[in-house]
Amino acid sequence: MSSNPNTIFKRPESLSDNITHYCPGCTHGVIHRLVAESLDELGLRERAVGVAPVGCSVLIYNYFNCDFMEAAHGRAPALATGFKRTRPDMIVFTYQGDGDLASIGMGEIVHAANRGEKFTTIFVNNAIYGMTGGQKAPTTMPLQKTSTSPAGRDVTKAGFPIRMAELLATLKTPSFIARGAVHTPMHIVQTKKLIKKAFRLQNENKCFSLVEVLSTCPTNWGIDPNGSLQWVTDNMQPYYPLGVYKDPEKKNGEES
């Protein structure tokens, strides 16, 4: 990596030099970067262990320059629990998609959050199963067409999309729960703050922390990258309001 004194922007040290396999217009890359910048800025990289999910980001360990393990589908919070309890001095984070966290891994994330496990979860919600080819997710929008709901999500049979941040925020155990998005530069900046705070709280041994990030899937949504960003604004944001849902540093009811 260059050490040119004129460098004003560079790849975070926590990211590797590998080129990602993500589709054009996918925002996983942006979210990876926000995580990596947070690790760098807090000086956590050398103590960090990531837990990879099953889903599009299954190969995330190729893109990070820190230790990683690869979980079974949905089980990342259990791995993170096992690791963090055994090595409380390390920094542990899971990076999970909506199928992984909100469907098959619902049990693991709820209980990890409820026990107040002191790791951080980055929850990437793009309202669809990406890697397996665009099937319906628990977070798929009402009437959204997917390969397993070709006529659109029927809420009378599939129920309504699960709002994970809100659901986890109902738990009494103190935690930091927030939802951000990365479809505009402003949202990227705001989400970076949330992710960095989540890691800071872990580093201070405060609480469980989870940041849900609204993301895109141009390939499986069948919408071009720019249209996908607009789709987040038009369809996802109204149903998945952004903000901090639970914050151990704020009293109940206090504006965040």
């Binding site: 393990m69 089980r75 259990a78 049990g107």
Partner: peptide
């Protein structure tokens, strides 16, 4: 743990 599924995976992580 909350289940043996979680136990197995906690072992994995630990």
């Amino acid at each position: 743990a909350e289940s043996e599924v979680a136990v197995g995976n906690m072992l994995f992580g630990a």
